[in-house]
């Protein structure tokens, strides 16, 4: 039987009364990359901390491969590892020492941990800084050191809470490559508020808003949840501020319109006849996110500025 995650009516209210999760229920296969997206304060970190056995929910059950991790967290801790949000590589250690100690905490013998650390730091291109203090590394390198610790571990379920926040585009792209490789052998539960990142990396995506799961599934599943399947954008610069009226919708330069198959054909032909330059694409995760979280796509007013 393949691995799976099952959350059943998980709620969390913090001692001061703040309700972070409201009856979160979902079941997903534990393979590839699952991205949980949502705005700041949506409850992503709370959910990850519960799944990683750091935090008790106020109510509900969580099962990983049939193991009740709320009642029996020790049974799953050998299989999981996490980079928490705001985690930093300890400043007075070197990358080599950081990864080695992480592996020791996971029960590996010292000699084995050192050898494995050296191997993984090499794989991630950190050999040249392996013996420098973490505090002297760049932000991207520091983040890679933490990822290296997870990569080196024997855990097959990895939680990463906003691992690319604050990284420059190149460092982020490097991390994406690492995660894409890593997902071949391990399950990665990722939280992010970069929608492009989630769309590019994920096999499955969940949208969390105000403590509730609003949608969950593959990109195809999510696209099926919105009534319009394509977006058309005017990219014409020659016409300046010219507005055109088409199919009942008012389009401006730089704006998008969401349409179904038939509308797409009609509007595209019309725009070609009027000599406008435009692009037509399947709706993106960003479009779907706004649709589900804000209910903006699909109605007659379906133009997003």
């Amino acid at each position: 039987m393949s691995s799976y995650f099952k959350c059943n009516d998980v709620s969390k209210t913090y001692p001061k009364g703040q309700m972070a999760l409201r009856g979160v229920t979902f079941e997903i296969p534990a393979s590839g990359i699952f991205s949980l997206i949502g705005r700041n304060g949506a409850g992503k970190t709370t959910l990850v901390r519960i799944l990683a056995t750091e935090l008790m929910p106020s109510s509900g059950d969580v099962f990983i491969d049939g193991v009740d991790i709320i009642k029996d967290p020790d049974s799953i801790r050998k299989r999981i590892a996490i980079i928490p949000q705001e985690a930093r590589a300890i400043s007075w250690l070197t990358p080599m020492q950081t990864v080695t100690t992480f592996l020791l905490y996971r029960g590996m013998k010292y000699a084995e941990a050192k050898a494995r650390s050296r191997e993984v730091l090499k794989e991630l291109g950190l050999t040249s800084v392996a013996d420098k203090l973490n505090r002297t590394l760049s932000g991207g390198q520091k983040r890679k050191v933490l990822v290296a610790a997870l990569v080196a571990s024997d855990a097959d379920i990895l939680f990463m809470d906003e691992p690319t926040t604050g990284l420059d585009p190149i460092s982020r792209a490097e991390l994406w490559d690492i995660l894409s490789e890593l997902k071949k052998n391990k399950f990665i539960f990722l939280t992010t508020h970069y929608l492009e990142e989630a769309e590019r990396l994920s096999d499955r995506i969940g949208i969390l808003d105000q403590g509730e799961i609003k949608a969950i599934g593959t990109m195809s599943d999510l696209r099926a949840m919105v009534p319009k399947k394509y977006s058309i954008s005017l990219i014409d610069r020659d016409h300046g501020s010219v507005e055109i009226e088409n199919n009942g919708s008012l389009m401006k330069i730089g704006s998008r319109i969401f349409v179904d198959d038939n509308e797409a054909y009609v509007i595209a032909r019309d725009l070609i006849n009027k000599n406008f330059r435009f692009s037509i694409n399947p709706v993106s995760l960003e479009d779907i996110y706004y649709s589900i979280a804000r209910k903006e796509i699909g109605g007659e007013e379906g133009v997003q500025d």
Partner: peptide, 18 residues
Amino acid sequence: HLKNDFKLQDMVVSSPTT
């Protein structure tokens, strides 16, 4: 310091270390 500034304790909680 290790718990609040580096989140080491969170990483250790989600590991086999008791």
